[in-house]
């Protein structure tokens, strides 16, 4: 499959401090890829290198077939969308005027503003001045701004960090819809439920090094104890290892009608991260 992003032996230092150590990965076209890690792990540095805001110390980086040395060209910029901690809005202007500016910069018809405002659930507030919006509403406008030109590749740094569960679900649906239309999404998040629900593959970045990379279900399986947690009708809780020797015991429990519930022992993505890095995934 064609790759939207290819990163090979990426290394970034700020003076004597190393932010990223020889990281390699690729993101397939049409994939939702999650980069997970605590603050200071190198996530934002990676996004900034991919968006041309930083230059790598060494290593090869290409995105959409463009080499990192050409990330500042208008052609590359017109194909990507960015929502990061460096994103912001003009506070004295309305939502509509903010999006109008970016429609014109990207040469997009103005009717796209209404489409995007429907997507982020802000159509009713289109003439509201940005300074009067809540933090969550501003985050949604910034997401609309990042997606208004239907980019091929979107970089989202903590896209739902300021949103309530209702709006978070709305944004997730919009991102999935965008992805179904063929857009590749590269996101960073601390929200493990979000990563599990949205991402096709996730990478764990810890202290600038890539620790794991796979699809969430595969990682959860890999770090599972492979045991069955059985609750009997008598109220007993049994942990039975998933090995051939236990087949008869399981058959007996089920056959005798003793089983109330059976669960496999798959850890959450957060628990996997803790096992891999020894650190909780907190901001």
């Amino acid at each position: 499959m064609e790759n939207s992003i290819e990163v090979s032996d990426l290394h970034k230092s700020f003076g004597k401090k190393t932010a990223i150590k020889d990281v390699s990965f690729h993101v397939e076209k049409g994939e939702i890829f999650g980069l997970l890690g605590p603050s200071g792990s190198g996530k934002t540095t990676t996004i900034k290198i991919l968006t041309g805001e930083l230059t790598q110390t060494h290593g090869k980086v290409t995105a959409l077939g463009t080499d990192a040395s050409r990330f500042s060209t208008a052609d590359y910029k017109s194909k990507i969308g960015i929502l990061s901690d460096n994103s912001s809005l003009y506070e004295r202007l309305s939502i509509y005027d903010n999006l109008k500016l970016f429609c014109k910069l990207y040469n997009v018809p103005l009717k796209q503003i209404d489409v995007m405002l429907q997507e982020v659930n802000l159509h009713e507030e289109r003439q509201t001045t940005v300074s009067k919006l809540s933090k969550g509403m501003k985050q949604r406008v910034m997401l609309a701004k990042a997606l208004i030109h239907k980019p091929e590749l979107v970089f989202l740094d903590e896209p739902t960090s300021a949103l309530d569960p209702g709006n978070m679900a709305h944004i997730h649906r919009s991102l999935q819809k965008l992805n179904e239309a063929g857009t590749t999404i590269f996101l960073t998040t601390h929200n493990m439920e979000e990563a599990t629900a949205l991402c096709d593959r996730v990478a764990f970045l810890h202290k600038g090094e890539l620790q794991e990379l796979d699809c969430p279900s595969a990682l959860r399986y890999k770090y599972s104890t492979h045991a069955f947690h059985v609750e009997t009708v008598q109220g007993d809780r049994l942990v039975i290892e998933n090995v051939p020797e236990n087949a008869n015991r399981m058959k007996e429990l089920i056959g005798n009608g003793h089983v109330k519930s059976i669960h496999t022992d798959h850890p959450t993505l957060g628990q996997v991260f803790l096992k891999v890095t020894g650190e909780e995934l907190v901001s």
Binding site: A74, S88, Y90, F102, L105
Partner: peptide
């Protein structure tokens, strides 16, 4: 200060 300049720089505007 408000980081809006970065938004312009990240757009295709030169």
């Amino acid at each position: 200060e408000k980081k809006t300049l970065r938004g312009l720089v990240q757009s295709p505007a030169s």
